[in-house]
């Protein structure tokens, strides 16, 4: 192996690397927040008393979960622009990511909801809690608490998935890397640096979710399960 590594060639681009990482983080935060909302709504729909609602949510979830994200993002981005609906690349990327992660979140949250003993809901009804209160305090929050570790892993996976947005030329970390390597011809080094940045973001994310869990689920902290 005659190759000489030259990381110095990448030094002038450190600002681009960081701005790419920043876009990746922004994409992730936006998609996690919106995906969580979609996910919870779909989980509720999946358990609804209305058959049509259950079926619709089921079709959405199974379609998204059984097709690759890259096909989904092409379908949305190129599809929408072919019917004249042009939107900024980052918006399209977030749109596709939210649709994608919403389906996975829905399945995870639903599993948590199914694990809530029915007696607790009956107890809440007996105490005269309203339907909204029951959903919020007895079903949704405890369900999320139960599946929080699974959700964290899913969102980290989603952060890694944002790299695919580079394929519609979004300027996130991987997109930036593609540009830098074509400028410097230092592809191997570029992707090593970017890989390390992704690992850094992964750790950041795990730490952030641990912190959010500590604040959002005080009971878990008290029980020492966190």
């Amino acid at each position: 192996m005659q190759y000489e590594f030259n990381f110095a060639a990448l030094a002038p681009y450190w600002g681009s690397f960081l701005s790419g990482a920043w876009v990746t983080i922004q994409l992730t935060v936006a998609s996690v927040a919106l995906g969580m909302v979609i996910g919870v709504l779909c989980a509720i729909a999946r358990r609804s008393a209305f058959r049509s609602l259950r079926t619709a949510a089921g079709i959405y979830i199974e379609t998204v979960r059984n097709t690759p994200f890259i096909v989904q993002i092409f379908f949305i981005f190129f599809g929408l622009s072919s019917v004249g609906l042009r939107m900024p690349i980052l918006w399209a990327a977030i749109f596709a990511l939210v649709i994608n992660v919403g389906a996975y979140t829905a399945e995870i949250v639903r599993a948590g909801m199914d694990a809530i003993p029915h007696g607790q809901i009956e107890a809440a009804e007996a105490l005269g809690l309203t339907k909204f209160q029951i959903y919020r305090d007895i079903i949704i929050m405890p369900a999320i608490e139960k599946v929080y570790p699974a959700l964290t892993s899913q969102f980290v996976l989603m952060m890694l998935t944002t790299s695919i947005a580079s394929q519609i030329s979004a300027e996130e970390l991987t997109g930036v890397a593609n540009n830098i390597q074509s400028n410097t011809f230092r592809s191997f080094e570029t992707y090593i640096v970017v890989g390390l940045l992704y690992i850094g973001i992964t750790f950041l994310m795990r730490a952030a979710f641990w912190g959010i869990g500590q604040i959002a689920f005080p009971r878990r902290r008290k029980l020492g399960e966190a």
Binding site: M1, Y3, L160, T161, S163, I164, S166, T174, A177, Q181, S187, F188, Y191, I192, V194, G195, Y198, I199, T202, F203
Partner: peptide, 18 residues
């Protein structure tokens, strides 16, 4: 902790480098 996409690029360019 790294995207499969990056692993693809690393393998593709890395083997070329070797």
């Amino acid at each position: 902790g790294t995207p499969l996409l990056i692993q693809m690029f690393l393998m593709y360019f890395g083997l070329g480098v070797a």
